[in-house]
């Protein structure tokens, strides 16, 4: 019998992931694990996770050295670590609340310094772990537990486009947005993630892969309906593709 697919060896050895059914975090973590194995850097990688579903779910699931950062600060933590330990492969794993709400300053400045790190940014348009509150990426009109009448862009702000905002800076190297709604997009997203790591190995600088993701539990939709929501609502706001590749 021929093996056509197997689970990466560096996930799920100690404990299962703690993500909800239909959550795309588990796919993203698996893609990261595959890329680390393909690049042969599992043993030299350090993950700097944020606080939220990003940190909690991945904690102990991905079998590599892991540092949880104070909420929003992963890129400040990772920047210093990488400067002191350039031989290690360093990546942050952050959600939208972590990366562009509370961590906006740290994200902007790490990108502006062109830190040679990889950022895996999972955008599910709300705060997952705390129960579905509004995030900077919440769509206009989208109901969350703190925008019960729908997000009003005039009062609550409009959705923030991380790749496009960082594209205004001189120093980032690679900014791309994928999703995990179907095999084609999963394969494409993996290519982005791989390039974001490959750039670091080549010393090219700040590389960010954004993944538009589903949160069925807080969206109040089934996993399948969540995929429809991404295709119909999220992707028109957050178009897929490479925003910058230098």
């Amino acid at each position: 019998m021929k093996t056509v697919y197997k689970k990466p060896e560096c996930i799920g050895n100690k404990k299962p992931n703690s993500y909800c059914p239909g959550c795309m975090h588990s796919i993203v973590v698996r893609l990261v694990a595959e890329v680390l194995e393909e690049l042969n850097v599992v043993n030299s990688s350090v993950m700097f996770a944020g606080v939220g579903c990003d940190g909690n779910g991945a904690f102990g699931y991905l079998d590599i050295d892991t540092v949880i950062s104070p909420h929003g600060r992963a890129l400040a933590v990772a920047s210093a670590y990488k400067r002191c330990n350039p031989e290690n492969v360093v990546f942050t794993y952050q959600g939208d609340g972590d990366l562009i709400a509370i961590g906006c300053a740290e994200t902007m400045h790490a990108a502006n310094r062109g830190e040679n790190v990889t950022v895996i940014f999972v955008n599910n348009a709300q705060y997952g772990m705390t129960g579905g509150q509004m995030a900077p990426t919440t769509l206009a009109g989208m109901k969350t537990t703190t925008t019960p009448y729908g997000r009003d862009p005039k009062a609550d702000g409009a959705p923030m486009h991380v790749c496009e905002i960082l594209d205004t800076l001189d120093n980032p190297t690679f900014l791309a947005r994928g999703t995990c709604t179907d095999p084609k997009n999963i394969i494409q997203t993996k290519k982005y993630i791989k390039q974001a790591f490959q750039n670091q190995l080549e010393g090219k600088g700040f590389s960010l892969g954004e993944i538009v993701s589903a949160c069925p539990s807080n969206w109040g939709l089934s996993p399948l309906k969540s995929i429809d929501f991404i295709n119909e609502k999220m992707l028109p706001e957050y178009p897929l593709g490479i925003v910058r590749d230098r």
Binding site: F48, V67, S69, P70, R73, A76, V77, A78, S79, A80, Y81, R83, C84, N85, N88, A105, E106, M108, H109
Partner: peptide, 19 residues
């Protein structure tokens, strides 16, 4: 490193220290 704030700076210290 000059951090962009005291908040970032102490987190940079955390990042250097974990290594």
């Amino acid at each position: 490193m000059q951090g962009e704030s005291e908040v970032a700076s102490i987190n940079m210290i955390y990042g250097a220290a974990v290594g």
